[in-house]
Write a protein that binds this DNA or RNA. Structure first.
Length: 535
RNA sequence: GGGCCUGUAGCUCAGUCAGGUAGAGCGUCGGACUUUUAAUCCGAUGGUCGCGGGUUCGAACCCCGUCAGGCCCGCCA
């Protein structure tokens, strides 16, 4: 059974209606790591719906969280906002400094700025959660009741956190962080509590009272999370392994939520996604790839497959080079399979059956529109990469595919894939080993490995190419002819040509590539090859 | 110090919850095709299941220990 179905089954044992929740702090640019958070939730929700449950899938935007520091991508003017809530400060402009104008005129915040492209990507990927803005929820009094309970039972909560996390809370600790005189959550001390007011004084010498029913502050993180479970009624949440450790925020949360009078949600801990060869992704290290950027390279189904095929507790390495080719080709293979038919085979062992079921489950989760069949395009990524490099115009690509019988009609899906492929080829992510390259200097090693016959063909080939017209058809005829002239198989002519021009044993169709190249340069290279052999 | 996750074929992983003859894909090798789309098709190859003990008729799976890698325990998914 697919992991999402296993989770759905666990939920079904508890109740018929569920709220599956996800949440992200919009503190900087989103990356594909964040996609795992939301896709994991989406897949559980989808599986639960398929199992006949009523499911509300929500995405909580943690806009009430404070800006922790002036990140590298922010200008120095952000110093004044450290400690202030992300949904209450201006967004950065191109130069990294605050865009006051949009903030004042449209209320365009820091949180909005980073969230918007992510939401756009989600739409494309087929994830449609109900959005809950956390800061707004505080301001609208959604947290009021639970905040009161938290403040009333401050000692119980304090005890729970200290016991479970094993760390000691400071003396003035209180389960409510009031906003100080400058709108920040730091540099402020609670001096008293009389519902609904929490009295405070800050390091700027100001004092005041924060109304906990109006969002004039927020619950500290370890209480904020269980409080959300409470008022939203969350019954299932997937979260990163950082929250899942013993003594981490889930283990304190599950106890705190009970103090607040609710049940903890069904947890699902997932591993992180790293960028191949660069460790965990982090915005400050700059080794991120955003969902938008990823979508320019591959279609959404393939991105979904990446998350769907790995069990949540497996770390995923996202590789924008060869790994992407493998992943995309795997997608094509899976799409072409008939799982129903495979499962009908009685001879399958239990083990093999599980594998087929998991593959089928992963593909079900990979579709952008739930329930829709994925169609195989019949063209592998690898193949398309070749064609996209050798054919300048799209229609040439389609003609070539139709000529070989691989393709009957050009679907919008294929056109879309070709567009992304062309973008990928231009980008720095495209792997070198996939890049078609004609040598500029002879590859001596390859040439010296040629035998007597092949050396003769080499000379014949040079003569033939010198004589022929410089277009794909003529070149395509000349290469094999150069071998036929010597009563050798056409194949050996290609072997020689690859050795001379690309330094490889085999390769992509040569004629169209050569036709696109400068004739003189190719001829010069071939002459140089003959020179090498002459010695 | 406490805890979590991972370790199975060259690579990526399934199988561990409910113990019953080691599984898939990729790769590699071989063959078919031969004016070749690094294509396609067919076939083969491949593992002391990290290591050591224990329980059992039987252990990749359960228990104990141990090694290695990653991570968490001051709000990075």
């Amino acid at each position: 059974m697919h992991w999402a179905d296993v989770a759905a089954q666990a939920l079904a044992h508890k109740s018929d209606t569920h709220v599956v929740s996800t949440g992200i702090t919009p503190s900087g640019e989103f990356h594909i790591g964040h996609l795992r958070e939301i896709l994991t939730g989406d897949m559980i929700a989808r599986a639960a719906k398929d199992a006949g449950l009523t499911v509300d899938f929500v995405f909580i935007i943690d806009s009430a969280d404070p800006l922790r520091k002036v990140y590298d991508f922010l200008g120095p003017e952000y110093e004044q906002f450290v400690g202030n809530q992300l949904g209450a400060i201006p967004a950065p402009k191109e130069d990294g400094n605050p865009d006051w104008e949009r903030f004042q005129n449209e209320g365009w915040t820091y949180a909005n700025h980073f969230l918007e492209p992510f939401l756009k990507a989600l739409k494309e990927i087929g994830v449609r959660p109900r959005l809950i803005d956390n800061l707004e929820s505080y301001r609208n009094g959604r947290f009021a009741e639970l905040s009161k309970t938290a403040c009333d039972r401050a000692d119980d909560i304090r005890e729970a956190i200290e016991r479970i996390s094993g760390r000691e809370l400071p003396d003035g600790w209180f389960p409510w962080s009031p906003l100080n005189s400058r709108g920040g959550l730091d540099k402020v001390r609670v001096t008293g509590y009389e519902y609904p007011l929490v009295h405070w004084e800050d390091e700027y010498g100001a004092t005041g009272s924060s109304d906990i029913t109006k969002g004039e502050g927020k619950l500290p993180w370890r209480i904020d999370w269980p409080a959300k479970w409470g008022w939203i009624g969350v019954t299932c949440e997937a979260f990163g392994k950082d929250h899942g450790a013993a003594g981490g925020s889930y283990s304190t949360g599950r106890e705190i939520v009970q103090i607040l009078g609710h049940e903890p949600p069904h947890p699902l801990v997932y591993e992180w996604i790293s960028l191949k060869g660069q460790g965990a992704m982090s915005s400050s290290a700059g080794n991120t790839i955003g969902p938008i950027e990823a979508l320019r390279l591959v279609p959404p189904e393939i991105l979904r497959l990446l998350v769907a095929k790995s069990k949540p507790n497996k770390a995923i390495e996202f590789d924008t080079g060869m790994g992407l080719v493998t992943l995309a080709d795997e997608f094509e293979r899976l799409a072409a399979r008939d799982f129903q038919q495979e499962l009908a085979n009685e001879e399958l062992s239990r083990r093999q059956k599980v594998q087929v079921e998991d593959a089928a489950g992963a593909m079900k989760m990979a579709t952008v529109v739930s329930g829709q069949e994925v169609q195989a395009t019949a063209v592998t990524f690898r193949h398309l990469a070749l064609l996209a490099q050798t054919k300048k115009s799209d229609s040439d690509v389609w003609m070539s595919l139709q000529a070989s019988g691989a393709l009957k009609e050009i679907t919008p899906q294929l056109q879309d894939r070709l567009n992304r492929m062309r973008y990928w080829i231009q980008s720095s992510h495209f792997p070198n080993e996939m890049r078609i390259k004609i040598l500029t200097e002879p590859n001596t090693t390859m040439l010296e490995a040629l035998d007597e016959v092949e050396r003769r063909i080499m000379k014949s080939l040079v003569v033939a190419l010198n004589a022929c017209e410089w277009n794909a058809t003529a070149i395509g005829a000349s290469i094999p002819q150069s071998a036929k002239d010597l009563d050798e198989s056409p194949r050996s002519a290609f072997k020689v040509a690859y050795a001379a021009l690309m330094g490889t044993e085999k390769g992509p169709r040569l004629a169209p590539i050569l036709a696109e190249m400068d004739r003189e340069e190719i001829l010069r290279l071939l002459d140089a090859c003959v020179q090498v052999l002459g010695n």
